[in-house]
Amino acid sequence: SPEEIKAKALDLLNKKLHRANKFGQDQADIDSLQRQINRVEKFGVDLNSKLAEELGLV
C-alpha cells in the first residue's frame, strides 16, 4: 500500500541521514537527504525514482 511504501522510504532515508551526520558527509548531501524526506512526507514515493529502485519496488 502507499502508506507502507512511504513508511519504508522514510525509514531508509532517515537511516541515510543519520549515517551522513555520524560520518560527517558534505552539508550538501545532508541537505539533499532532508529534501528527499520532506518530498516523501508530502507526496509519497514516485515509482519511477531511484528511491523506488532502492526499495525494490521497480
Rank of each mutant, 00 (worst) to 15 (best):
L13S: 00
G56D: 06
N48M: 10
L47M: 13
R35K: 12
K15A: 12
R19S: 13
S49R: 01
L12S: 05
K16L: 13
D11P: 00
E53M: 13
K22N: 10
I5W: 13
Q25T: 12
N21T: 14
N14R: 15
V58F: 05
S32A: 14
E53D: 07
F23I: 14
R35L: 11
L12F: 14
P2K: 11
V45E: 02
Q36Y: 04
K6H: 04
S1F: 09
K16M: 13
V45T: 02
A28Y: 10
N38H: 09
E41F: 03
R35V: 09
N38Y: 05
L55V: 05
E41S: 07
L57S: 03
D31C: 07
A28C: 11
D31K: 08
L33F: 03
S1M: 07
V40A: 02
I37L: 06
L12P: 02
F43D: 09
N14H: 15
K6D: 03
D11N: 05
G24W: 06
S32D: 14
E4W: 14
A7N: 12
A20V: 05
K22S: 11
L12Q: 06
N38A: 15
N14M: 13
K6R: 12
R39N: 14
K42V: 09
S32M: 15
A28K: 11
I5T: 07
G56W: 04
P2D: 13
L51P: 01
S32N: 13
L57H: 04
L12N: 05
E53W: 13
R39G: 09
I37T: 00
D31F: 00
N14Q: 10
Q36T: 09
K16C: 12
I37C: 01
K50E: 13
L33I: 15
P2G: 10
N38K: 14
D31P: 03
L57F: 11
R35A: 14
G56H: 06
S1W: 11
R35G: 09
D29W: 15
E3N: 08
D26P: 14
K22Y: 10
Q36D: 09
D31A: 10
A52F: 09
P2A: 13
Q27T: 09
K15G: 08
N14G: 07
